[in-house]
Amino acid sequence: TTYYDVLGVKPNATQEELKKAYRKLALKYHPDKNPNEGEKFKQISQAYEVLSDAKKRELYDKGGE
C-alpha cells in the first residue's frame, strides 16, 4: 500500500487534493470518533506528512521514505 493509496489519491494529485483527502479521512478515522481506528489514523497522518512536503514527496516518489 502506498501513501497515495492510504489517502485515496492519484500520484499526480495536487497539494489541494491531498489536503482535502487528508481532512476527510482524518475526520472519519479520528480516535475521538473512531477509537478502534487509531492505527489507521496514524497511517493517514504519516502519509499526509510525507506527501504534503515537496522535498519528502519527491524523495518518496523516487523510492525512498
Rank of each mutant, 00 (worst) to 15 (best):
T1W: 14
Y3K: 02
Y3R: 01
Y4W: 03
Y4D: 00
Y4M: 01
D5V: 05
D5Q: 10
V6I: 15
V6K: 04
L7N: 01
L7C: 01
L7R: 00
G8N: 07
V9E: 02
V9D: 00
K10G: 10
K10M: 10
K10P: 13
P11L: 06
P11I: 09
N12D: 13
N12E: 07
A13T: 05
A13K: 00
A13M: 03
T14Q: 03
T14Y: 02
Q15C: 09
E16W: 07
E16V: 09
E16R: 12
E16Q: 10
E17M: 09
E17C: 05
L18Y: 01
L18W: 01
K19Y: 11
K19G: 11
K20I: 14
K20S: 14
K20Y: 12
K20D: 15
K20M: 15
A21V: 05
A21F: 02
A21M: 04
K24L: 13
K24H: 11
K24M: 13
L25V: 03
A26T: 13
K28W: 08
K28A: 10
K28R: 11
K28S: 09
K28M: 14
K28E: 09
Y29D: 02
Y29P: 01
H30K: 07
H30C: 10
H30P: 05
H30F: 07
P31F: 06
P31A: 07
P31R: 05
P31I: 06
D32L: 12
N34T: 08
N34G: 07
N34M: 08
N34V: 07
N34F: 07
P35A: 15
P35L: 06
P35C: 07
N36W: 10
N36I: 12
E37G: 12
E37Y: 14
G38V: 14
G38A: 15
G38H: 15
E39G: 10
E39L: 11
E39H: 12
E39C: 10
E39T: 07
E39R: 08
K40R: 11
K40V: 10
K40W: 10
K40M: 11
K40E: 06
K40Y: 11
F41W: 15
F41I: 04
K42T: 07
K42S: 08
Q43Y: 09
Q43N: 12
Q43C: 10
I44P: 00
I44H: 01
I44W: 02
Q46K: 15
Q46L: 15
A47M: 04
A47V: 04
A47T: 01
A47G: 01
Y48I: 04
Y48W: 12
Y48V: 01
E49N: 09
V50S: 04
D53E: 04
D53Q: 03
D53T: 03
A54I: 13
A54G: 07
A54D: 09
R57Q: 03
E58I: 05
E58N: 06
L59N: 10
L59Y: 08
Y60Q: 02
Y60C: 04
Y60F: 03
Y60L: 03
Y60M: 03
Y60V: 03
D61A: 02
K62W: 07
K62H: 09
